[in-house]
Design a protein around this nucleic acid. Structure first.
Length: 137
RNA sequence: ACUACAAACCGGGUUAUCGCUCUUCUUUUAAAGGAAGGGAGGAAAGUCUGGACAGCACAGAGCAUUGCACCGGUGAAUAGCCGGGUCUUGUGAAAGCAAGAACAGAUAGUGCCACAGAAAAUAACUGCCUGUUCUUUCUUCGGAAAGGGCAGGUGAGGAUGAAAACGUGAGGUAAGAGCUCACGAUUAUUACUGGUAACAGUAAUAGUGGGUAAACCUUGCAUGCUGAAACGCCACGUAUACCAUCGCUUAAGGGUGACUCGCCCGAUGAUGGAGGGUAGGCGGAUUGAUUCUGAUAUGCAAAUAUCAGAACAGAUAAAUGAUAGCCACCUGGGAAACCGGGGACAGAAUCCGGCUUAUAGGUUUGUAGUAUUU
RNA sequence: GGCCCGUUCGUCUAAGGGCUAGGACACCACCCUUUCACGGUGGUGAUACGGGUUCGAAUCCCGUACGGGCUA
């Protein structure tokens, strides 16, 4: 049964992983956001967690902690609701993905906007997964 | 009733769906699932302060550094709070009222005080007066006047300035001066009275040497340093490795994190260089000088004591959320039904006390003003 | 989380508490040139903000805002 959850296991938490993602991973911009991602074949030992994600906001653009928290919460919410198709396709091609989304805009967004943008982001990631899959197989 | 100011308090509620975190219970080999309950502020902020707590191989002393600076109380402690004193400012005829104070010392010393002004500080210059002498002029031949020099007296006058060696008036004098007197201002000491004290009042005596210590400084008091990324434990990994220097026995050097003495450490060594590894978990860590409410007692108050009751988050790339509706509040349109809009400042990060700053709107109390009614 | 430093014309900077806050580049006007550039003359333009100390603050002190650095 698919669940729209986002608990500790599905979040990207390790500092080491995140540093590696910024250093080695690929990225693309999408107007208020910038997306860092890395796709690799899933190892046999690692269990079930095929998609980990995190969000971030620069304190340079938003000085108040209230605004940063708000954006991160909205982003997480939008991701949580819409992530299921991406997860399904990752499972089918037997790969895992690390994902980090940074908000680069300068104004506080509405939830509608964030939701729309995440729809586009996740669709693009889904196509990327399939592109990578075709030459591999 | 309205307006303004000050202080204190509050800082929306609820339902549904989806979701996060912690605790307890439970199903289960485990992973995972289920149930119940808890889950952001008055400032969580600024990091301005005081502690708790922890570590530093901390005997101790000196001297720095830094901070504080009227008195009493309070408290774990403070630059906080409460009460009082003094000064300044505003208002007022005054009494008073309100606000503010970094309110020790300028007679320990050093420095500075632009421009202006004679002079910005042991008083010089100019001026005034007395004596003496020189020159010139006048002369009734005794002297007189003017100018200059020397000696002495004096600190009144000298356009300024933020500030000029107590102020005003009178006497006094060759000229003058607190030199004397009256009134007033102010400082110190002593005595008495009141007060725990700061201090106030009265009297006497001696004075009147500018300002600046948020200039250096002096005095008194306090102060070791570093801060939870502290620190302890477990796991992983590694190296009694390489290079250079010193040294192999009373010694290089290191520690005591400002310094000096002193003390301590010091040979499978020490320091430096270059390089490598790890950066996961648990504790610290969430209930403590705790907060709130009520009662009693002490106190002007801050606050304290006793009793009773209630409350108290714990994340770690970092939870406390999203969407929709209803109610309450404010507001625009409308006679009404109703339709539309709005909700501040702001997000825990070891924990407490205080200060400072931000804050839509609401409630209460006090003060002042205006209007109306009785 | 903790510690520390800074803020002067549009930009880079100077100024022992004291004269109208100085200079360079830039900008504007005029002169020079057939014109542009160069050059010359003149001008506009600032002490982050709010208080305090002082006769007098860019400077000294306090608070606020903003910016920057260090920190296993």
């Amino acid at each position: 049964m698919p669940k729209a959850s986002l608990n500790k296991k599905e979040r990207l938490k390790s500092r080491k992983e995140i540093d590696f993602l910024f250093k080695e991973g690929k990225s693309f911009p999408l107007t208020p956001f910038r997306v860092y991602y890395r796709i690799k074949p899933s190892a046999e030992s690692s269990t079930a967690i095929s998609l980990q994600a995190g969000v971030g906001v620069s304190s340079r653009n938003f000085k108040k902690a209230v605004d940063r928290n708000r954006i991160k919460r909205l982003s997480r919410e939008a991701y949580r609701i819409q992530k299921q198709p991406l997860l399904d396709s990752l499972v089918t091609v037997n790969k895992e993905m690390r994902l980090f989304v940074i908000y680069t805009g300068r104004e506080l967004p509405q939830f509608e906007l964030v939701k729309e943008k995440f729809t586009i982001i996740l669709k693009r990631l889904q196509t990327l997964v399939h592109e990578n899959n075709t030459p591999a197989s």
